[in-house]
Computed example of a mutant assay.
Amino acid sequence: MSITLLYWILIALMLVGVVGAVVPGLPGSSVIVVAILVWGFVQGLSAISLALGVAVGVLLLSVGIDFLATYWGAKRAGASKWGQIGAIIGLVLGILGLLPALPVGGPLLGILIGPLLGAFIGEFLSRRQLELELRLKAALKASVGIVVGSLVGNVIQGALALATVIVFVVTTSPP
């Protein structure tokens, strides 16, 4: 395999990582780091030092963004701890496919629907003191806030992952 072909295969793999940074349940920034490391082993680690540093920084930042964006969405929507815990449980169940089988989208939709349902149920249970109508409104608002926050975080992670690929392309030249 030629060096040039390997370079472009790694770029394509990194672009898959960018998509993975946005789409829940797919590997994202970690794929980009691995692709950069492969190039570093072929060309020498000094050739990738800046790109690798940026990629590792983005990988660590992505974890923080995930939590902060979900927390921000929950906070803005007035979600309780129950709603946040419900969203996490719903996410796990959605990833594992324990939600009812969906005719279209399967696990990918489960990853989106799981947190929404989990947050709704958690929030509904935590607001027992409210009338039914107010309880339903609070639960819906909190669950939508958590999911919107999570989606905003995914978009930010995608932008950071794309910036990492751009840094890699700019700092390494195709042979």
Results as ranks from 00 to 15, higher is better:
Ile48Ser: 08
Ile89Val: 15
Ala21Tyr: 05
Leu112Arg: 06
Ile89Pro: 03
Val34Lys: 02
Val63His: 12
Met14Ile: 04
Trp72Cys: 01
Ile88Glu: 02
Val92Arg: 04
Phe41Ile: 14
Gly105Val: 06
Tyr71Arg: 04
Gly118Ser: 08
Gly97Cys: 09
Gly64Leu: 00
Val31Gly: 04
Leu116Phe: 13
Phe67Trp: 10
Leu15Phe: 15
Val23Met: 13
Phe41Gly: 14
Gly20Pro: 06
Ile85Pro: 01
Gly78Lys: 13
Gly118Asp: 12
Leu116Pro: 05
Ser30Lys: 00
Gly122Ala: 01
Gly40Thr: 10
Gly20Ala: 10
Ile9Asp: 06
Ala51Arg: 12
Gly64Thr: 00
Leu10Gly: 08
Ala77Lys: 10
Gly25Gln: 08
Ile9Thr: 14
Ile111Gln: 13
Thr70Asp: 07
Ile48Arg: 10
Gly78Thr: 14
Leu26Cys: 02
Gln43Ser: 14
Leu6Ile: 15
Lys75Tyr: 14
Ile32Gln: 06
Val33Gly: 07
Pro107Asp: 01
Ala119Cys: 12
Pro107Arg: 11
Gly90Gln: 12
Phe120Ser: 02
Trp39Ala: 15
Trp72Tyr: 13
Glu131Cys: 00
Val38Trp: 09
Ser29His: 10
Leu117Asp: 11
Leu130Ser: 05
Ile65Val: 15
Gly97Ala: 05
Leu60Gly: 13
Pro115Cys: 11
Gly118Lys: 09
Glu123Asp: 07
Leu112Gln: 03
Ser126Lys: 04
Met14Pro: 00
Trp39Arg: 14
Ala79Leu: 12
Leu26Ser: 07
Ser29Val: 07
Tyr71Thr: 08
Asp66Glu: 14
Leu37Thr: 09
Pro115Asp: 12
Arg127Pro: 00
Leu93Gln: 08
